[in-house]
């Protein structure tokens, strides 16, 4: 407390922070919690165990999981290439990684839908050559979520790769390890926690994503309908309790994911000393 008397502004900044946080975030969020107290528990169970709701959760989670896995794999390679190798246009590629952070999701949504719909230029190509349809299928959702996930993975893995102490690699090589062994036994175990964090961040974001998905998903109930869309559908039908119940379930899951990510990061920090 003594510090607060030396540095100016303790009282005003802390009280403004808490006040503004309550007004903008905490009070609105608590509405959802209090509103769901108004629901009868059986009624709540009824809503969230409805076949269509369960299917939507399954679609949301499985596509987010698939996208996070694919994005982690390719994102790791991208981060590796960006930190380890030099090539023409590296700066440009480095900058464009953040495009999904900067490009509004609706724009991403319509352009991905245009590319991958059966009449779109990639959609048509895949359809004609591989009999593969991505647009208006769950695969389309995965594509949109991969787009969203790229910067999460790359930006988490990159700094760790950058700070990786190459003397460890030299030491391993000097002890007779092959390049592949150095990667598998020295580099990867050190990068893994960051990769896991990037994966979890993408997954958490993917589960709640709306804008980039709805245009490409086709939104067929039971097949390609995601949870956020179902909430909106309920709202448009003036089914407030339904929307509230689904939203609360989703919120709780998101917070659990957030907790998991924090534990992960804590673990990473502890491991890296």
């Amino acid at each position: 407390m003594s510090q607060s008397r030396i540095m100016p502004g303790f009282r005003p900044t802390v009280s403004f922070t808490v006040f503004y946080l309550s007004l903008v975030v905490l009070i609105p969020l608590s509405t959802l919690v209090f509103k769901s107290f108004e629901l009868n528990f059986d009624y709540y169970l009824n809503i969230i165990t409805h076949k269509r709701v369960v299917a939507a959760f399954r679609v949301s989670f499985s596509t987010a999981l698939g996208a996070a896995i694919i994005a982690s794999f390719f994102g790791f390679i991208v981060a590796w290439v960006l930190t380890r190798y030099s090539f023409a246009g590296k700066r440009f590629f480095h900058a464009i990684i953040d495009l999904p952070f900067a490009l509004p999701t609706a724009v991403a949504g319509i352009v991905l839908a245009t590319i991958f719909q059966p009449s779109g230029f990639l959609g048509k190509f895949l359809k004609e050559n591989f009999d593969l349809q991505i647009g208006f299928k769950p695969a389309g959702i995965v594509v949109a979520l991969i787009f969203i996930s790229i910067p999460f993975v790359v930006r988490t893995v990159e700094p760790v790769l950058q700070e990786f102490d190459s003397r460890m690699e030299e030491a391993a090589s000097s002890l007779g390890a092959t390049r592949w062994q150095v990667f598998a036994k020295i580099i990867f175990p050190n990068i893994f926690p960051a990769l896991l964090t990037g994966f979890a961040l993408s997954f958490a974001r993917g589960v709640g994503e709306y804008g980039s998905v709805i245009f490409i998903a086709g939104n067929l109930p039971y097949i390609s309908e995601i949870v956020p869309l179902l909430i909106i559908t309920k709202l448009e039908q003036y089914d407030m309790p339904g929307a509230t119940a689904i939203a609360l379930t989703m919120l709780v899951i998101s917070f659990l994911l957030l907790l998991l990510i924090n534990l992960l990061q804590h673990w990473v920090r502890k491991r890296s000393g």
């Binding site: 407390m1 510090q3 607060s4 540095m7 502004g9 303790f10 802390v14 922070t17 808490v18 946080l21 975030v25 905490l26 609105p28 969020l29 509405t31 959802l32 999701t105 958490a204 589960v207 709640g208 994503e209 709306y210 804008g211 949870v227 956020p228 869309l229 909430i231 909106i232 709202l235 929307a243 509230t244 939203a247 989703m250 919120l251 998101s254 917070f255 994911l257 957030l258 924090n262």
Partner: peptide
């Protein structure tokens, strides 16, 4: 710049909107 009780909680709460689905962010209002 200051040490006070509940600081870590405050940091977590500030991050809260990041982990809420945009649709839910609209719904609460």
């Amino acid at each position: 710049r200051f040490e006070f009780r509940g600081k870590n909680l405050l940091i977590t709460l500030i991050d809260l909107p990041f982990s809420v689905s945009p649709v839910i962010s609209g719904l609460i209002f």
